[in-house]
């Protein structure tokens, strides 16, 4: 007799097989299949871009960039990992690279720290927390490290490579992010 866990696993395997056949169709140049793939994963890609950038317009542009590049680079997906895991990795890389290109000079020159959340957060209380809003309020480097480590599960070594920083800096930024969150959530 199958347990509920086995049933869920079988369902997931079935869904993943369906997804793989969709990916194969896209590799053959099927635009309709790509639109379907886009619709299936838009929310997950945008969520990651929005958390990394903390800016709706920039996240939308970065999401477009992810799907534009994905169309051309899908051949690189060999099916070794789950598609969603691979897509998260692609999204992180493209989004970070996009942010570097878009904001690099502008922020260096004017030292801007503009996020959508700067003006939208009041002091919080521990029981009633919109973590996404707090994340968007974090300073850029601390936010990116926090999202990649705590939300996406990256190791600090991977983050250091992706963000071109020392491993120690990644850990320090993560610590800083948690300190700020702790303060905003009313724990300090």
């Amino acid at each position: 007799m199958q347990t509920q866990g086995q049933l869920i696993e079988a369902k997931e395997q079935f869904a993943e097989r369906g997804l793989l056949s969709l990916v194969e169709a896209v590799k053959q140049g099927d635009r309709q299949a790509y639109h379907k793939l886009y619709q299936m994963h838009l929310g997950q890609v945008y969520a990651l871009c929005y958390r990394l950038t903390a800016d709706r317009a920039l996240a939308e542009d970065a999401t477009q960039e992810v799907f534009i590049q994905l169309w051309r680079k899908l051949d690189n997906y060999r099916g070794d990992a789950k598609f969603s895991t691979w897509l998260h990795s692609v999204t992180s890389n493209v989004c970070v690279s996009y942010m570097r290109k878009q904001r690099g000079w502008w922020q260096r020159m004017f030292n801007l720290e503009s996020t959508d959340a700067v003006h939208e957060v009041a002091e919080g209380s521990a029981g009633d927390v919109d973590l996404d809003t707090y994340i968007r309020r974090l300073p850029e480097r601390a936010r990116m490290v926090f999202v990649l480590h705590a939300v996406e599960g990256y190791r600090h070594e991977e983050i250091a490579q992706l963000l071109d920083m020392a491993v120690g800096s990644s850990k320090a930024q993560f610590h800083r992010a948690k300190q700020l969150l702790s303060e905003w959530m009313g724990y300090e």
């Binding site: 969520a47 709706r56 996240a59 939308e60 996404d132």
Partner: peptide
């Protein structure tokens, strides 16, 4: 945290 957040505008025309 939600896995899925939808953008406010339609991004597909630009991608297409």
């Amino acid at each position: 945290l939600p896995d899925d957040i939808q953008p406010e505008r339609d991004l597909w025309p630009g991608i297409e």
